[in-house]
């Protein structure tokens, strides 16, 4: 009784892993589908941006030591990179969607850029630059907000 089940299980697990690894952002067929993907990307990007803001705040208030802040900022930037790359790889289903893509992509790029600035500032411990990056991130977060959960 256990035999066939056990043999099937590894296959299922492999299949699941394959689906998950390849299927993070799949093709999108309709504009609605495309918008949903953009919304998910906005949510993920907001998470990275807010992480960056929190790290900046901790650094400015001297509540986190440099090594930790550096790693946290770097990871936020990496997360942002990932979100942007995933969204860019989606084929827009129509020319109307191209517009969405262009505007939204610029916002994602700004977010990634600001997180990069934050990482550099944190690493050099330039508090002025950290503050500037935090201000940028705050603006970007406000712009992302309405796109989340559409």
């Amino acid at each position: 009784m256990i035999g066939p089940r056990v043999r099937r299980l590894p296959c299922l697990v492999l299949l699941a892993t394959a689906v998950l690894v390849t299927g993070c952002v799949g093709p999108s067929r309709t504009d609605a589908d495309y918008h949903r993907k953009a919304s998910n990307s906005a949510e993920a990007m907001r998470s990275a941006v807010e992480t960056g803001r929190l790290v900046a705040d901790l650094v400015l208030r001297d509540r986190a030591f440099g090594n930790y802040a550096n790693v946290a900022a770097t990871e936020a930037e990496q997360a942002a990179d990932g979100v942007q790359a995933a969204f860019d790889s989606v084929q827009p289903p129509s020319t109307a969607a191209d517009d969405v893509r262009e505007k939204f992509d610029a916002l994602l790029q700004a977010a990634t850029g600001a997180l990069g600035d934050l990482r550099i500032a944190v690493r050099r411990h330039l508090l002025g630059d950290v503050r500037k990056a935090a201000d940028d991130l705050k603006k970007i977060s406000a712009q992302l907000e309405p796109l989340v959960g559409v």
Binding site: E50, L54, Y68, A79
Partner: peptide, 13 residues
Amino acid sequence: RGISVDTLSQVAL
């Protein structure tokens, strides 16, 4: 803040 956790550093925040 809408932060989702995908790294250990965020757990410590």
